Simulated assay, not measured.
Amino acid sequence: MPETTHATSAVLPALPALSAQAERLIELGVHELAGLPAVELRTFAAAAEAPAGGESALLAVHPDQAPASALAPLLRRDGKAGFVVTDMPDVDLFAPLDTVVLPDAPLYLLTGLDRGDQMANWSPNEALPALTAEARTPLLLTEGIHWVMQQPAVLERNHCFMTIGSRLRKANGALDARTPALWISNGTGRDGRERRNAPKVGWCWAGNRHTWLGFASATGRRVQNL
């Protein structure tokens, strides 16, 4: 495996309470994108709320209900809206890997989130088996977007992340070599200067390494507290 650039991932602020996360999604109109009444998000969050001192979790909407192309523009950084790179028009065709099992529900929770800073300068092909060996599941692109929606500080220069749980399959069944990621635009090239510092959904090759990209993962997904 490649040499790691950090011993562990940075300690990030705690996620908001699930009730606050539900209100954030409602404020952004995610419930309307997903075709869900606001009361359903509030009820789910209230039922799944962790007790004081309990494990925090991220509230996510199933990607079938709210695709990445609709969620990305809701991201904000320095007052600028998020966007998907122009050479990723098929972003919504990136689906969960066969090893990633999603709850059969419109709303679910992710636990034990980690940005994967310790894997910076690894390639996606190297990181995936390592995460699997640690019993961690890679985040989907939509899950990564939800994380940044609720905790914008998770996306910072030189410490952004890939979401390799989402991949595109070619007609022959092989995986497309692109792997999705979330980072901050420099406002160069086709991004446009007006998008400098905006949150960006892009992609990297599965065999390439980047010193500024970790690999976001979680310990699991569930629909309610056990």
Score class of each variant (00 low, 15 high):
Ala133Gln: 15
Glu143Gln: 13
Leu113Phe: 13
Asn208Arg: 12
Pro152Phe: 06
Ala181His: 06
Asn158Ala: 05
Pro16Gly: 08
Gly79Pro: 06
Ala22Arg: 05
Thr5Glu: 12
Thr8Ser: 13
Thr142Lys: 02
Arg76Val: 11
Leu59Gln: 08
Phe83His: 10
Thr4Arg: 15
Ala52Ser: 14
Met119Asp: 07
Glu134Ser: 13
Leu25Gln: 15
Thr86Leu: 09
Glu134Ala: 15
Val223Trp: 10
Met149Arg: 08
Asn186Cys: 04
Ala135Trp: 00
Glu3Gln: 12
Thr86Tyr: 02
Ala216Leu: 08
Lys80Glu: 01
Gly165Lys: 01
Val101Lys: 14
Asp64Leu: 13
His159Met: 12
Asp104Tyr: 00
Ala95Lys: 13
Leu97Trp: 12
Trp183Cys: 11
Thr188Val: 13
Gly214Asp: 08
Glu55Lys: 12
Ser217Trp: 02
Leu28Ile: 04
Leu97Ile: 10
Ala17Lys: 12
Leu75Asp: 04
Pro67Glu: 02
Leu226Met: 06
Ala66Arg: 09
Pro124Gln: 02
Thr188Arg: 14
Gly54Leu: 11
Lys200Leu: 13
Gly116Asn: 07
Ala153Trp: 00
Trp183Val: 02
Ala181Ile: 02
Gly35Ile: 03
Leu139Gly: 08
Ala45Ser: 05
Arg190Val: 05
Ala10Ser: 13
Pro67Asp: 00
Lys200Ser: 03
Gly165Phe: 00
Ser123Phe: 03
Leu226Gly: 13
Gln150Gly: 00
Gln150His: 12
Leu71Asn: 01
Leu18Ala: 02
Leu97Gly: 14
Thr8Val: 11
Arg77Val: 03
Pro37Met: 08
Thr43His: 11
Ala171Asn: 02
His146Met: 10
Ala135Ser: 14
Leu28Val: 02
Thr86Arg: 14
Trp147Asn: 10
Arg221Pro: 01
Val148Ile: 14
Pro63His: 10
Glu40Phe: 00
Gly187Asp: 03
Gly82Tyr: 01
Ser19Phe: 00
Asn197Lys: 12
Gly144Glu: 03
Val30Leu: 06
Val148Thr: 08
Thr219Ala: 11
Pro103Asp: 09
Cys160Tyr: 00
Pro199Met: 03
Ala52Thr: 14
Thr5Asn: 08
Leu15Tyr: 08
Ile145Glu: 09
Pro103Val: 10
Gly116Phe: 06
Ala95Arg: 15
Ala20Trp: 00
Asp90Trp: 11
Ile164His: 08
Ala57Arg: 15
Gly53Thr: 01
Leu15Val: 05
Leu182Thr: 02
Tyr108Asp: 03
Arg221Phe: 15
His6Phe: 13
Glu194Ile: 02
Ala153Pro: 00
His6Gln: 12
Val91Phe: 07
Leu128Gln: 03
Thr132Asn: 04
Arg115Lys: 08
Arg169Tyr: 11
Gly202Cys: 02
Gly207Lys: 10
Leu175Trp: 10
Thr8His: 13
Pro73Trp: 06
Glu3Ile: 07
Asn197Gly: 01
Pro73Phe: 07
Asp191Asn: 10
Arg157Val: 09
Pro106Arg: 14
Thr137Ile: 15
Ala60Gln: 09
Asn172Arg: 04
Pro138Asn: 06
Gly82Pro: 05
Gly192Asp: 06
His146Leu: 07
Glu143Val: 09
Gln224Ala: 15
Thr5Met: 14
Glu27Tyr: 01
Met119Gln: 11
Pro37Val: 06
Arg196Cys: 08
